[in-house]
């Protein structure tokens, strides 16, 4: 019985793998359902590697099963094939050293090519100037600044389709990671650093974006929606925002620096003129100090926001 199960098990696993792919289709699997050229390149690389890996897994499982069935101890027929003298075989060992080397080489070439190609703007739209967006992670929210349009958004991102977006990624405090699975892989956001990443959407739609690197208590909620729209819709949104949205003051911005969740917000100016997180890694910490925020152990009975609340109350009564 055990042998039977053992023999079937690898096939079961393979069947499971295949069925999840076939039944689930690719629509449910964000990483394999790309909506832009960056994620599409990564999907191609992933599918290529899955192909190689299924081949390796298949080969090992088949060999494993044959050996187990054939050389198991059998009381009835004896073990004619038993040969305890075998201690190695140079030819075989060379074969199973060389084949993995070839596989590694075969995977290395597309990997390195893709790594380099992801550093550049997507080829198909390389004639267009990229739209620059500053993505700033703050505990536990995302702030997006559009320097050319002079617009800033909190916890949502509007982009035109078919245009490369050049993200300048940074953080005001903890190390976060910008990830929009359907548009492309992630990149870390770090205070005092500014990193560049190209992403692009080819289709109108709403995609999930989030922070993928653990940043503490509010980490699970540190996510945002990406709305990819046509150029004309995007322009409309920009014009409307410029007219209607309030300006972003330093005081308002300081409140955004507090470690807390935030609602979706829109402003008609950016923080880039007074806070440069890419160069100044201390801005958020000092803003918290200015507001009287006090970091305490999560088990402490002191409310870290106590002074902030008092300060706010005082402002309101004045």
């Amino acid at each position: 019985m055990i042998f039977l199960f053992r023999a079937i098990k690898p096939m079961l696993l393979l069947a499971m793998l295949v069925s999840v792919f076939v039944l689930g289709g690719c629509s449910n699997i964000a990483v394999l359902d790309p909506k832009g050229p960056v994620a599409a390149q990564q999907k191609d690389l992933i599918l290529l590697s899955i192909g190689f890996m299924l081949f390796i897994v298949g080969a090992v499982f088949v060999l494993f099963t044959i050996i187990l069935v054939k050389y198991r101890e059998r009381k009835d027929v004896g073990n004619a094939s038993y040969n305890p003298e075998i201690h190695g075989n140079t030819l075989l060992e060379v074969v199973w050293t060389v084949i993995p080397i070839l596989i590694v080489a075969a995977l290395s070439i597309p990997t390195v090519k893709t790594i380099y190609s992801l550093e550049e703007a997507p080829q198909a739209t390389s004639h267009k100037d990229p739209l620059v967006v500053y993505a700033t992670a703050v505990d536990w929210k995302w702030i997006f600044s559009y320097p050319e349009e002079n617009i800033e958004t909190v916890n949502y991102l509007n982009i035109p389709k078919d245009q490369p977006i050049l993200f300048k990624i940074t953080s005001a405090d903890t190390m976060a990671s910008l990830w929009i699975p359907q548009l492309g892989g992630e990149k870390y956001a770090m205070a005092g650093m500014e990193m560049e990443q190209y992403l692009q959407a080819d289709e109108v739609g709403t995609y999930q974006g989030r922070n993928a690197n653990f940043t503490g208590e509010g980490f699970a909620q540190q996510k945002f929606k990406v709305n990819a729209m046509t150029q004309s819709d995007y322009d409309k949104w920009v014009n409307k925002t410029k007219k209607e949205a309030p300006k972003l003051t330093k005081k308002t911005y300081d409140y955004l620096m507090l470690p807390d969740a935030a609602d979706v917000q829109t402003f008609s100016s950016t923080h880039l003129s007074f806070a440069k997180h890419g160069e100044d890694s201390e801005y958020a910490l000092q803003a918290r100090k200015r507001l009287g925020y006090q970091a305490v152990s999560p088990h402490s009975k002191t409310d870290p926001f106590e002074n902030v609340k008092n300060y706010k109350r005082k402002l309101e009564t004045e």
Binding site: L45, I56, V57, G185, A212
Partner: peptide, 25 residues
Amino acid sequence: IPNFVIGGVTGVMLAMAAADYQYHN
């Protein structure tokens, strides 16, 4: 053997940096 091989081949997948941007974390 079979279980470790599954872990091993997915390790190779993770090793491919350009793809890892999608698996990381």
